[in-house]
């Protein structure tokens, strides 16, 4: 039995009167890649933001290794260091060079010496093919490069779990690949990851388990092959149908 790393119990998040997340129970095990799918507005991104305590929650608990993640916790910065997050819009710091973007948090939050942090940053940049861009500013990079830097910036904190919030949604198609390859490489290393994405092929390739979220609830949970080939629920079938254009053509031909 693998060890439970992240545990979410009965999570409720309300926003402006309505419930965005309506009783989520979810456990992420060590070394597991969990992909969260769902139509827009289903609460996927909100769920990731709650895990990082960026959103106040109304009920339920979120804990990492048994330690509760709460917005009022004095320990929150230390817990957040263990939860790496990568945003759709990259959110690099525009006033800092690539190298400083990456080393800011290890130096300030973890009090690691500059030399050591920079050495690790350069090694990680090398892994994602961006070592020669260390001195550049974010504005000089393409979207795909920015996102790879953002991933490195999360990795250098040695997080126990990584959260990816639609990290390729803002990218031009030809840049999606370079970012997804980095994430696939992380999966091969056995990293624990929670991935929100709209890239179905990628989801199928990377996921150990797929969760479908709709109207703030988990409606289906299955291994990727099962989920994509034999979805159990009607909701999952409908969701997958909206993504394939093939079905529409077949219907037209039969008529």
């Amino acid at each position: 039995m693998p060890k439970a790393l992240l545990t979410i119990e009965s999570l409720v998040k309300n926003y402006g009167g309505g419930a965005v997340l309506n009783g989520i129970d979810l456990t992420v095990y060590e070394g597991e890649v969990l992909v969260i799918l769902g139509p827009s507005g289903c609460g996927k991104s909100t769920l990731l933001r709650c895990i990082n305590a960026l959103e106040p929650i109304q009920a339920g608990t979120i804990s990492l290794n048994g330690e509760p993640i709460r917005r009022d916790s004095k320990d929150l910065p230390r817990l957040r260091q263990k939860v790496g997050m990568v945003f759709q819009s990259y959110e690099l710091f525009p006033h800092l060079s690539v190298l400083d973007n990456i080393t800011l948090s290890p130096r300030k939050a973890q009090r690691r010496p500059r030399q050591e942090a920079e050495a690790e940053a350069l090694a990680l940049l090398d892994r994602v093919g961006l070592k020669d861009r260390a001195g550049d500013y974010p504005r000089q990079l393409s979207g795909g490069q920015k996102q790879r830097v953002a991933i490195v910036r999360a990795l250098i904190m040695h997080p126990e779990v990584l959260l990816f919030d639609e990290v390729t949604a803002a990218l031009d198609p030809e840049m999606v690949r370079e970012v997804l390859d980095v994430i696939l490489d992380l999966a091969r290393q056995g990293r624990t990851m929670l991935i929100v994405t709209h890239e179905m092929q990628f989801a199928r390739a990377v996921a150990d388990r797929v969760v479908l979220l709709d109207e703030g609830r988990i409606v289906e949970e299955a291994p990727p092959e099962e989920f994509f080939d034999h979805p159990k629920t009607e909701r999952a079938q409908r969701f997958l149908n909206t993504l394939t254009f093939e079905t529409v053509k077949k219907k037209a031909k039969n008529q």
Binding site: P77, R80, S89
Partner: peptide
């Protein structure tokens, strides 16, 4: 505001 969130998510304290 998401710039602040990004900084906080890295484990920086609010003051940092």
């Amino acid at each position: 505001p998401i710039q602040m969130e990004s900084a906080l998510s890295l484990g920086l304290t609010p003051v940092q």
